[in-house]
Design a protein around this nucleic acid. Structure first.
Length: 155
DNA sequence: GCCAACGTTGGC
DNA sequence: GCCAACGTTGGC
């Protein structure tokens, strides 16, 4: 059982969008970074905890709690010629990029990035390190507990 | 819109 | 294999 923070631009897919999706589940595709891909391919397993993070928006932060709902499978978007996520170097026989399904569980009271930066228990988070821009990053069990507890506090 | 930081590409 | 140039990310 591992824990992850996954970034999404809410203009594209917000946590509420996932809650509203059939089965409260969406495919997490379009990752085009090897480190993030390797986490999905090699380490993610169904049931892993996910913090759903909103990036590139007015107030970045953690919007809700989710879980990994599948193991990694080839990202279909890499084969869609002309599409935003097309990769000419990928082939169906040797797919380069993978996706996983993510299932939304619980919307917390929003935890802004600015507040995360004030929490000593979170100072080692990959997300908070200078220059960090990984779209998927591992978090520790202790960080997970701290954030989930905070998300569950009434606003 | 700016810009720092990072990842990738490609010439050599 | 080096490294400069370029593209992208993402907070502010």
């Amino acid at each position: 059982m591992a824990y992850w923070l996954m970034k999404s631009e809410p203009d594209e897919i917000s946590f509420d969008d996932v809650l509203a999706a059939p089965g409260q589940t969406v495919a997490w595709f379009g990752v085009r970074n090897y480190q993030a891909r390797n986490f999905m391919r090699d380490q993610m397993a169904p049931g892993d905890g996910v913090l759903f993070y909103h990036s590139s928006c007015a107030e970045p932060g953690v919007a809700g709690i989710a879980e990994v709902a599948s193991s990694a499978y080839p990202d279909a978007a890499q084969f869609e010629q002309g599409g935003k996520y097309f990769d000419p170097k990928s082939t169906p026989a040797a797919p380069r990029w993978v996706a996983v399904d993510v299932h939304a569980l619980e919307r917390g009271s929003y935890l802004p990035l600015a507040e995360m930066r004030t929490m000593p228990a979170l100072e080692d988070m990959v997300l908070l390190q200078k220059g960090s821009r990984l779209s998927i990053s591992p978090i520790t069990a202790a960080q997970w507990r701290t954030i989930v507890k905070r998300l569950r506090q009434p606003a």
